[in-house]
Simulated scan of single mutants.
Amino acid sequence: MQFDSISDFFHMGGYAFYVWLAYGVTFACILGLVIQSCGQKGRVLKHIAQKLAREERLKQHRSSNESKT
Results as ranks from 00 to 15, higher is better:
M1K: 13
M1G: 12
M1Q: 11
Q2F: 03
F3I: 02
F3S: 00
F3T: 00
D4M: 08
D4F: 06
F10L: 03
F10W: 13
F10D: 00
H11F: 03
H11L: 05
H11S: 10
G13F: 03
G13A: 07
Y15M: 12
A16N: 04
A16G: 06
Y18S: 10
V19R: 01
A22M: 12
A22I: 12
A22T: 15
A22R: 11
A22N: 09
Y23C: 15
Y23H: 14
G24N: 02
G24F: 04
G24Y: 01
G24D: 02
V25N: 06
T26G: 10
F27G: 06
F27H: 08
A28P: 09
I30M: 14
I30Y: 13
I30F: 15
I30G: 09
I30Q: 10
G32T: 13
L33H: 07
I35A: 08
I35V: 10
Q36T: 12
S37Q: 05
S37N: 10
S37R: 05
C38E: 08
C38V: 14
Q40V: 08
Q40D: 07
G42V: 02
R43I: 00
V44L: 08
V44S: 07
L45N: 12
L45F: 09
L45Q: 11
L45H: 11
H47F: 14
A49V: 11
Q50R: 10
K51E: 14
K51P: 00
K51T: 14
K51S: 14
L52S: 11
A53Q: 12
A53L: 06
A53F: 03
R54L: 08
R54V: 02
E55V: 13
E56N: 06
R57P: 01
R57M: 11
L58W: 07
Q60E: 11
Q60H: 06
R62L: 15
R62F: 12
R62H: 08
S63M: 13
S64D: 08
N65H: 12
E66V: 07
S67K: 06
K68I: 05
K68P: 01
K68L: 05
K68N: 00
T69I: 14
T69K: 13
T69E: 13
T69Q: 13
